[in-house]
Amino acid sequence: SMGQARALMGLSAQLDEELDFREGDVITIIGVPEPGWFEGELEGRRGIFPEGFVELLGPLR
């Protein structure tokens, strides 16, 4: 894990590789696949999402 982030708003996945989450969910960050995107894990599910949907809870490791 690289850190954690809290969802500022919900994301309804449009693509298979995207992660669904609700506002307030705390997501474990597991990677940065490309600039502007995070890869995360939530409730046993993994996927990517735009960084603008979340606030980091501390610096990434």
Rank of each mutant, 00 (worst) to 15 (best):
I48W: 11
E17M: 11
A13C: 06
E43A: 12
A7T: 09
G10R: 09
G52V: 13
R6L: 08
A7G: 01
M9L: 10
M2P: 09
E18K: 15
E23I: 10
E43T: 01
L42T: 04
G47N: 01
F38L: 07
E51H: 07
A7F: 00
V32H: 13
M2D: 11
I30N: 08
D20Q: 12
E43N: 14
E34D: 06
E34G: 08
L15N: 15
F38Y: 15
D25H: 04
V54M: 04
D25T: 03
A5N: 03
F38S: 00
I48N: 05
A7N: 03
E23C: 12
F49I: 05
E41F: 05
L57S: 13
R22W: 06
S1I: 15
L15T: 15
S1M: 14
G36D: 02
L19N: 02
E39D: 06
I30T: 13
E34N: 09
V32W: 00
E34C: 09
A13D: 04
D16M: 10
D25W: 05
L42F: 12
V54N: 04
R22L: 10
E43K: 14
L15W: 03
W37E: 06
R61C: 10
E41T: 15
R61N: 13
R6G: 01
I48Y: 11
E41C: 06
L8S: 07
D20K: 08
V32K: 11
L19M: 03
L56S: 05
R61K: 15
E41A: 02
G58H: 10
E23R: 09
Q4H: 14
L8D: 02
L56V: 11
E55M: 03
Q4C: 11
D16F: 02
G31T: 03
L56N: 00
F53R: 07
V54C: 08
S1L: 05
G36W: 04
E55V: 07
G58R: 10
F49R: 06
E17Y: 13
L15P: 07
E55G: 05
E39R: 02
I30S: 05
G58I: 03
G31F: 00
R22D: 09
I29N: 07
Q4G: 04
G40N: 04
R45D: 04
F38V: 00
V54F: 01
L42H: 13
R45V: 01
E41H: 04
I48A: 02
L11V: 08
M9E: 09
V32I: 13
I27C: 05
G47D: 02
A13E: 12
I29A: 04
L19A: 00
I29F: 01
L8I: 15
E55A: 01
G44C: 01
G10K: 07
L19H: 00
L56P: 08
T28V: 05
E55Y: 14
E39Y: 13
R45L: 00
V32M: 09
G31Y: 00
A5L: 06
W37F: 13
A5V: 03
M2T: 08
E51V: 09
R45H: 01
I30G: 02
L8G: 01
L11Y: 15
E51A: 15
G31N: 09
M2Q: 03
T28S: 14
L60Q: 15
R22A: 11
G3P: 06
E34I: 13
D20V: 08
L56G: 08
Q4D: 04
F21L: 09
F53W: 15
E23D: 00
S12N: 15
I29K: 07
V32Y: 11
E41R: 07
I27Y: 00
A7L: 05
A5R: 06
T28F: 10
L42M: 06
G10I: 00
L8F: 05
I27H: 04
S12M: 12
E18V: 09
E34F: 11
M9N: 10
F49Y: 10
L15M: 14
L60R: 13
S1D: 13
E18M: 07
L15S: 15
D25R: 02
F21W: 04
W37Q: 04
V54L: 01
R45A: 10
D16S: 13
L19Y: 03
D25F: 00
I27G: 04
I27L: 05
R6T: 07
A7W: 01
L8N: 04
F53P: 07
F21H: 05
I48V: 14
I30W: 09
F21G: 02
W37H: 02
Q14C: 08
E41I: 14
G36I: 05
A13Y: 01
F53A: 12
G10Y: 10
V54H: 01
M9D: 02
G10V: 05
T28C: 00
L60D: 13
W37I: 13
L60Y: 06
M2R: 08
G31I: 02
A5C: 10
A5S: 05
G40M: 06
R22K: 08
W37P: 07
V54E: 02
M2W: 15
I48R: 14
L60T: 12
E43C: 12
E55I: 07
L8M: 04
P35K: 13
D25P: 00
R45Q: 12
P59E: 07
Q4N: 10
E34V: 07
W37N: 05
L19F: 07
R6E: 02
L8K: 12
A13N: 15
G44F: 00
G58D: 10
G31C: 06
E55P: 02
S12T: 11
G36P: 07
P59L: 06
G36V: 04
F38T: 00
R46D: 03
I48F: 12
G40H: 09
